[in-house]
Amino acid sequence: MKAWIGRILWKPRIRLRQAGRFAPLGALLLLAGCANLEYYAQSVAGHSALLQAARPLDQVLADPSSTDDLRTRLRYARSARRYASEVLGLPDNGSYTEYADVERPYVVWNVFATPELSLRLKPSCFLVVGCIDYRGYYREEAARAQARDLREQGWDVHVGGVPAYSTLGWYRDPLVNTFIRLPPGEVARLVFHELTHQAVYAKNDTAFNESLATAVEQLGVERWLREPENAALRPAYEIYAQRRADFLALLRDTRRQLLEAYGEAGTRAKPAPATPLPEELDPAEIARLRERKAAIIAGLRQRYEALKRDQWGGYGGYDGWFAQPLNNAHFAAIGTYQQWVPALLALARQCGSCRDGSLGPFLAQARELARLPHAERQRRLRELDQRAQGPRL
């Protein structure tokens, strides 16, 4: 077994300067229980391959085989990376100073699962990072296989491709081909988002971590686009961002309707779901809730078509998302990234010293929230949410 692990971690083509990066990954694999061994192994192999593919930005920019378009995008990304540390107060380290082409459309695929008639996500617990509301896979077929197993058990499941992720500062996370082709403002948004995870992290609280990163990305991009050298990017990005905001507003409203249908709106967090369908529901109630769920999702599709027709001039950039069968897991995943954004933006607005562009004081306040016990952090966030101006989830 150890020899097999060694072949994953110490392939001859790994550069010497990278070799020390993988020792903690190997330790995690050796500590994993048998049930999770295969999962940890794919995590080790996948992240190792990503780090092996990474090259310093200067090297990629000087490479004759790099296209002019790639060079332009990498320069914008490098500008955003510098801005993140020098102005916003995000970590100043080696992350996003390298570029990797992993030759696939996403760097990982996340698997989300919920009960059939609830928006409570099924958690997965791991060494070091604690419990999170999804499982990530470096191979799409592995994610799809996990999704099939969960569906056969009766869970609602969503598999989402992810263009970027953070190792919380343990490793030098690179820029990746999976998101460098996005508009430069969107690349900056992702860099700010992932660096936030390195700055502040609350164990076992995915909604807080992702909502904070989403709030910081919004504040960061607004500031970055005000820089004179980025003025030309602003008009196109504003159109892109408005369409994204319209799309998310539809999903947030659909999530609200589903929460109300399931009797979960405004309730405090319940224990993690143990089964895909609660035993206490009688057949008539199950039938009623299934019918209501189908009607809410059908209504979402109708509103999306109206939005495209009436406001977007026929733009169909989200048609692929709506082409898939939709279920609770899709809307629960959206909640993970959006639940506390209004509350945290309200906290940021209270930060007078943040007006010079730096988010350092706001991040310090968020760090204090992260240190609190989970129940107290939820209480503080609910208080902020009540005062927040913006959409309610």
Score class of each variant (00 low, 15 high):
residue 217 E to R: 00
residue 227 E to R: 12
residue 301 R to F: 03
residue 208 F to Q: 14
residue 179 F to M: 07
residue 314 G to K: 06
residue 367 R to Q: 14
residue 294 A to Y: 00
residue 5 I to H: 06
residue 6 G to K: 08
residue 40 Y to W: 10
residue 76 Y to V: 07
residue 30 L to M: 14
residue 276 P to C: 12
residue 5 I to R: 11
residue 204 N to T: 13
residue 184 P to Q: 05
residue 83 Y to N: 09
residue 116 E to V: 07
residue 354 C to W: 05
residue 194 E to C: 09
residue 166 S to I: 08
residue 127 L to A: 15
residue 268 R to P: 04
residue 230 N to P: 09
residue 157 V to R: 13
residue 319 D to R: 11
residue 339 Q to Y: 13
residue 282 D to E: 13
residue 199 A to T: 08
residue 68 D to A: 15
residue 144 R to L: 15
residue 342 P to I: 07
residue 105 P to E: 12
residue 48 S to D: 06
residue 236 A to K: 13
residue 171 Y to L: 15
residue 145 A to F: 10
residue 358 S to L: 12
residue 188 A to M: 11
residue 5 I to D: 05
residue 32 A to M: 01
residue 66 S to T: 15
residue 91 P to M: 01
residue 323 A to R: 08
residue 173 D to W: 00
residue 87 V to Q: 13
residue 29 L to I: 11
residue 2 K to D: 14
residue 368 E to C: 07
residue 217 E to P: 00
residue 241 A to G: 04
residue 204 N to F: 13
residue 104 R to G: 09
residue 217 E to T: 02
residue 216 V to A: 00
residue 114 T to H: 00
residue 34 C to T: 11
residue 357 G to L: 10
residue 328 N to P: 05
residue 381 L to Q: 05
residue 155 W to N: 12
residue 11 K to Y: 02
residue 88 L to S: 11
residue 29 L to T: 10
residue 344 L to A: 05
residue 221 V to N: 02
residue 47 H to Y: 12
residue 23 A to P: 04
residue 313 G to F: 13
residue 53 A to W: 04
residue 285 E to I: 06
residue 261 A to C: 04
residue 161 G to F: 11
residue 51 L to H: 02
residue 181 R to H: 14
residue 339 Q to N: 07
residue 79 S to K: 13
residue 9 L to Y: 10
residue 238 E to P: 03
residue 238 E to C: 02
residue 221 V to W: 00
residue 217 E to H: 02
residue 135 R to K: 14
residue 162 V to E: 02
residue 299 G to L: 05
residue 57 L to H: 07
residue 377 R to F: 08
residue 341 V to F: 05
residue 313 G to V: 12
residue 49 A to V: 06
residue 129 V to H: 04
residue 247 F to H: 13
residue 151 R to K: 14
residue 290 R to W: 00
residue 22 F to N: 11
residue 133 D to A: 14
residue 255 R to M: 09
residue 303 R to C: 02
residue 231 A to F: 03
residue 159 V to F: 03
residue 145 A to I: 07
residue 263 G to W: 08
residue 150 L to R: 09
residue 328 N to M: 01
residue 88 L to H: 08
residue 213 A to Y: 04
residue 212 L to T: 13
residue 204 N to I: 13
residue 350 Q to T: 13
residue 393 L to K: 02
residue 377 R to I: 10
residue 26 G to E: 03
residue 256 R to N: 12
residue 83 Y to G: 11
residue 288 R to Y: 02
residue 43 S to A: 13
residue 347 L to T: 01
residue 225 L to D: 07
residue 154 G to Q: 07
residue 372 L to P: 01
residue 227 E to C: 01
residue 207 A to C: 08
residue 312 W to D: 10
residue 372 L to A: 03
residue 291 E to W: 04
residue 142 A to H: 09
residue 296 I to C: 00
residue 182 L to T: 06
residue 385 D to W: 01
residue 273 P to K: 15
residue 286 I to H: 06
residue 300 L to A: 01
residue 100 A to H: 14
residue 199 A to W: 05
residue 354 C to D: 09
residue 308 K to M: 13
residue 369 L to M: 12
residue 158 H to T: 04
residue 152 E to Y: 02
residue 153 Q to Y: 01
residue 389 Q to A: 09
residue 74 L to F: 10
residue 299 G to Q: 02
residue 193 H to S: 12
residue 388 A to K: 06
